[in-house]
Design a protein around this nucleic acid. Structure first.
Lengths: 229, 229
DNA sequence: CGACGTCTGGACGCTGGCGCACAGAAGGGG
DNA sequence: CCCCTTCTGTGCGCCAGCGTCCAGACGTCG
């Protein structure tokens, strides 16, 4: 069985088969930009092995990552709300496969499957909570804790303790200086929680990393499990 | 004609009449707590003259306001997503009237009106964008700019340049110290942009306040107009 | 194998906001 | 009318993160 997307796995098999038959499997490459804020949504994506960052740009600043979409979610939910523009800058963070569907076809399929409608609505409710959580987190928590959270979230979505990301890129996601990331990361490494080398990061001691990270990580997971499971 | 809620005004008159007949008009008092995170949603509210803060609590911190709901929105959207729990702490910020509907009845009405479904879906899309905007704003912008934004948003929803709020409360909303608010507010007052006295704040020079405030205020309004208008 | 680009690691002073503590001013209730 | 609560204003030392610059380490590609 090939790796799947959890939203689609939740569908009854008839709806799922029907939906999958309309999808194409594409490989997303690191750094690919899938949507720009304000631009029309051409495709929706259901990551299977890949994952995607949602970044909110701010004038005069680098932008801030407000969401991470992996096999537990989808990119382009706005479409299911009847809005054809993306509010976010979406950039591929973890290379890998995703299922893709063009906008018109997605809307068509959505209209045909009330099961899909239900799953996506609940997913949107989760996203609402996660956005709020992220807002509070990036306001209050120190870089080290937020870095830990990011690594855990990415590790989950990469289905692997190792993935590719530079300090520079992390700084962009977290909305801090690159130097700040280097400092936090080297501290985590010194304590044996993670390892890294020229853009490849490895989670070494997951449990310890969880204890360093803020409660937002656990909160997110709890909400997801409660609403979706 | 009594003051209305803009979401409901957007409905075709038949649907609107039907929906309104199921609503009760209630007065919301300053400080009333309407939902707690994780608690079941008993009622949904469509403010007409009142407005409501959505606050995301964070362990070890005071919490952060992530949204403001006035006559342009509603409280309890999660219900329309099939989720009966509120992710937020919702507290009445501006005293006044609102239309209230109990949860079961709301779901029933929603099922009957596809126009209402459409409006609320678009509203949710707006909220998604606003949450992201707020996340970035509270990460990057200085207290003074954020305060200005908050005052403008509240002024809009209060339909009046004057409304009641103490520095203490503002600090809670913005996730900063009360002293930080006092400093920013007194600076704005010294420049003649606002006035205040023991909890009553007045916007004196709206245009100047807009120029002090970050672009997030304008961005929010633009998105709302584009998606809802 | 050498040169260049990329990635990581320090160092500098600076500042916005923090935590705390205290003092004056305005109102409201007994 | 006085006391007590609430609200606003100020002054401390402190620190996380900022902006900037430079240096070393690693890889890759010509």
């Amino acid at each position: 069985m090939p790796p799947a997307n959890r939203l689609l796995s939740a569908l009854p098999s008839k709806d799922r088969r029907r939906f999958l038959s309309g999808c194409e499997s594409v490989k997303l490459a690191f750094g690919d930009v899938l949507t720009e804020p304000g631009d029309p949504i051409r495709h929706v994506y259901f990551p299977t092995q890949s994952f995607i960052s949602l970044v909110m740009p701010v004038s005069g600043h680098s932008g801030l990552e407000v969401g991470l979409v992996g096999d537990e979610g989808m990119l382009g939910i706005s479409l299911s709300l009847g809005v054809d523009r993306s509010p976010f800058h979406a950039v591929v963070q973890g290379e890998g496969m995703a299922l893709r569907l063009d906008a018109a076809r997605f809307c068509h399929e959505l209209a045909l499957s009330s099961a899909l409608q239900g799953v996506l609505k609940r997913y949107i409710a989760v996203v609402l909570g996660q956005l709020a959580q992220t807002a509070a987190c990036s306001r209050f928590h120190v870089v080290e804790a937020r870095l830990a959270r990011w690594l855990l979230m990415s590790g989950d979505r990469a289905h692997s303790p190792t993935f590719h990301v530079t300090h520079d890129f992390l700084a962009y996601m977290l909305g801090v200086r690159r130097v700040g990331v280097t400092k936090a990361a080297s501290s985590l490494r010194a304590r044996g929680l993670i390892g890294y080398r020229r853009g490849d990061i490895t989670i070494v001691d997951r449990a310890a990393l969880e204890s360093v990270c803020c409660g937002c990580y656990a909160a997110d997971n709890t909400v997801y499990a409660k609403v979706m499971g």
